[in-house]
Design a protein around this nucleic acid. Structure first.
Length: 737
DNA sequence: TTAGGGTTAG
């Protein structure tokens, strides 16, 4: 009767029958059937306790029972049971049963005990492919890809024939290694072994090409596959999503639906990522509605995808709602929402959330550390960066190429170039992103030649520069006036590396040319750009026109910007500066009126400095700081010394219609000078590091140079575009910025 | 008795 219930899946009736009859009246077959039924129904703990009861009653399990129970050992909680069964196997005749020993290896691997699995492996004299396959899969799951390959070689050496399972497993380890050469060799072996028909193997191969971002190879294989299943489609969609090919991902999803391929919930996180990358909230909402209808909205991955999609589309309140309602938050959920805050510029909020997450007892992973470091570097919080560095070290993530690259970037953005270089040198594994971070660090700190040197070294080492690498090296050339080098790199993007320059590359090269006054070349490039110039490009032109007083071209750029970004005060201010430099005061007044009429207000400038792990924020002509009277008095005193060194306030840079004396005071109390003065008063020695939200003005640049000489301290200022290192009256930018 | 796919981070 019990086997009848088992065949028809009537677990309730089987359970009632089993409890109604006295335990001892059942034989080992009945116990095994009941254990099997419970495990098939997902009642693992009930199945395991039944097995323990069976042992307590002295009923000896047979081969089928052992195999059934071993298959239940799938996590670390069941490892004790696996050990108990192992002991029983050793004492019994099962010690010679290869099927049982193979299953034991598999059970140990699933419990994360690969060392014990290997011990069993070594005890077996006559191993078969399954023995190897089970251990190969274990090594992959624990991320021990090198051990997997050593075992694979051993398998071939001992003439154990690789099967479809073998190739599928070893391909997963190849994906883990992300080594194109290794994958290509395996691909050849698969063709030679006539396994090209196998959908499992092809899906693993597809995943390999997808994860190493060989999109064309992935698509080619996908098209050549004789049989495809839902996994093939999911891998292809995620590949498109990861590589920013939104259109292709959506088309494939439509094809999947037309062909009625069962897609379960797998493609939705990728599709949400696509909607996020397109900033297409309507598409995101459609996907959201779909997952709600399918009852999948509460799944961990889908919820995280939704949080990410809404925050990337700028709807942080929707992301917040989903995040707060979500009860089973994981590290990834927190990371997704923290990422949302950082993407929307809410750095303090992101750091607060990180603190909340720690309080829940969840451990951050490399992704969490990377995004929190980004928040930290955006605020240039040096001491927090150092604390995070030690947290990463303690968590064992310091060897991660992601965490290491983030730390290089953070130290560089906090102005600690030496620390950034040291971090880079100590990284065990370096990839293109690590090199990009280092090149960018030198570029931002005005070390153009060093940035170029690093770029060349990277190329010599065989790394192929990517779009971001060129952006960094072009920035370096631009900040250091290395025009010919910059042009060469720009041209090499298409001629050597087959990389199409993006708008930001054009903006960079245009600024570089404009900065040295090569407006003929700027206008020539403007005609060549294969797209409509965007505000970044026009504002690059406007900035260089300001430096050279080119008001004809400046006016064209400004008119474009007034239409494209009518609310951005920065453009109006720069244009009025250009008019002021050319003595066109009527135009200055016209712009001021335009700003008034349109209700445009200049973004308030503020600077901050960290003293004793506390951040002190200053606005221009600050009135709020508790020591502001003392700070201003100090600057008044200092100005006497500064004037002796030749400093004279440039009153023409202040466009307010007030007297010169008021202008001098207004310049003297600019936010960065208040922050520097506060640092002088609060510390006796050491480098002063000040951050500013906007670009520092010409007069402050002159003043801070003189300050560094008069006070005899080194001052580092990070403004919105780069670093200035002031020492002994000189700035590292060589007044070229 | 052994195998696969999705989100977030630089």
């Amino acid at each position: 009767m019990l086997s009848g219930y088992a065949k028809s899946g009537c677990i309730k009736e089987a359970r009632e029958l089993f409890h109604a009859v006295k335990d001892r009246n059942f034989n080992v077959v009945s116990w095994t059937i009941m254990i099997g039924m419970l495990s098939d129904a997902g009642c693992l703990s009930e199945a395991l306790s039944l097995f323990q009861k069976m042992q307590y009653l002295g009923i000896a399990p047979d081969c089928v029972t052992i195999l059934k129970v071993l298959s239940l050992c799938t996590d670390s909680n069941a490892s004790v049971l696996a050990l108990q069964i192992h002991t029983r196997i050793i004492k019994s005749a099962f010690g010679c049963n290869l099927t049982i020993l193979n299953t034991l290896i598999d059970a140990y691997c699933k419990c994360g005990l690969t060392e014990l699995a290997f011990a069993v492996f070594e005890e077996i004299e006559q191993r078969d492919s399954v023995t190897y396959n089970a251990l190969l899969s274990g090594y992959f799951k624990e991320g021990n890809y090198l051990n997997a390959f050593a075992l694979f070689k051993h398998m071939l050496k001992t003439c154990t024939c690789p099967t479809d399972f073998t190739f599928s497993s070893i391909l997963n380890s190849a994906t883990g290694l992300a080594d194109p050469g290794v994958g290509a060799q395996l691909h050849c072996q698969i063709i030679k072994s006539n396994f090209t028909w196998d959908v499992y193997i092809n899906n693993s191969l597809l995943d390999f090409y997808s994860k190493i971002n060989y999109v064309h190879h992935t698509r080619k294989l996908f098209d050549e596959m004789l049989a495809k299943d839902h996994v093939s489609y999911n891998v292809m969609i995620s590949s498109y999503s990861r590589n920013g090919l939104a259109k292709q991902a959506l088309e494939l999803f439509q094809e999947m639906q037309l062909l009625s391929i069962d897609h379960k919930d797998y493609p939705y996180p990728s599709l949400l990522s696509v909607a996020g990358s397109l900033s297409n909230r309507d598409l995101g909402k459609q996907i959201h509605a779909r997952v709600v209808l399918l009852g999948m909205a509460s799944s961990n991955l889908t919820s995280n995808g939704l949080i990410n999609m809404y925050s990337t589309c700028g709807y942080l309140s929707c992301a917040d709602l989903i995040f707060r309602q979500y009860t089973d938050k994981s590290t990834t959920s927190w990371t997704a929402f923290i990422t949302g805050c950082v993407q929307n510029g809410l750095y303090e909020e992101a750091l607060k959330l990180f603190g909340e997450m720690r309080k829940t007892g969840l451990d951050p992973d490399t992704s969490t550390f990377c995004i929190v470091l980004k928040a930290c570097s955006s605020l240039a919080l040096i001491s927090l960066g150092e604390q995070l560095h030690s947290c990463i070290l303690r968590s064992g993530y310091l060897s991660s190429v992601f965490a290491g690259s983030s730390l290089v970037d953070t130290y560089a953005k906090c102005g600690l170039l030496e620390y950034a270089k040291k971090m880079f040198d100590e990284m065990i594994e370096k990839n293109i992103v690590s090199w990009n971070a280092l090149i960018c660090a030198y570029a931002q700190n005005g070390k153009g030649k060093k940035a170029i040197e690093m770029f060349e070294r990277m190329v010599t080492l065989g790394l192929k520069p990517e779009s971001v690498s060129f952006l960094s090296v072009l920035n370096a050339c631009s900040h250091s006036g290395l025009v010919e080098e910059g042009l060469n790199y720009f041209n090499s993007m298409t001629s050597i590396y087959n990389i199409t320059p993006r708008k930001d590359h054009y903006a960079c090269i245009i600024y570089m040319l404009g900065r040295v006054g090569r407006f003929d070349k700027v206008e020539q490039l403007l005609d060549q750009i294969p797209f409509e110039p965007d505000p970044i490009i026009w504002s690059s032109i406007l900035n260089s026109c300001k430096i050279h007083g080119n008001y004809e071209l400046g006016k064209i750029a400004a008119d474009k910007l007034f239409c494209l970004e009518p609310k951005d005060a920065g453009h109006f201010v720069i244009m009025s500066n250009i008019y002021a430099k050319n003595g066109k005061w009527d135009e200055v007044a016209r712009i001021k009126k335009l700003m008034r009429d349109r209700g445009i207000k200049k973004e308030p400038a503020y600077s901050w400095v960290e003293i004793n792990r506390q951040v002190h924020m200053f606005s221009s002509n600050d009135m709020k700081h508790s020591r502001i009277v003392e700070i201003k008095a100090y600057l008044d005193e200092l100005s006497v010394e500064m004037e002796k060194e030749g400093y004279k306030a440039d009153v023409t840079s202040d466009l307010h219609l007030v007297g010169d004396e008021t202008k001098v005071k207004s310049l003297r109390y600019h936010s960065e000078r208040l922050a520097i003065a506060f640092a002088f008063l609060s510390t006796e020695n050491g480098i002063i590091r000040v951050m500013k939200n906007l670009r520092t003005c010409d007069d402050c640049h002159v003043a801070i140079k003189v300050m560094s000489k008069v006070v005899g301290r080194e001052i580092v200022v990070r403004d919105s575009s780069r670093f200035h290192h002031f020492k002994d009256g000189v700035c590292s930018c060589g007044d070229y910025w």
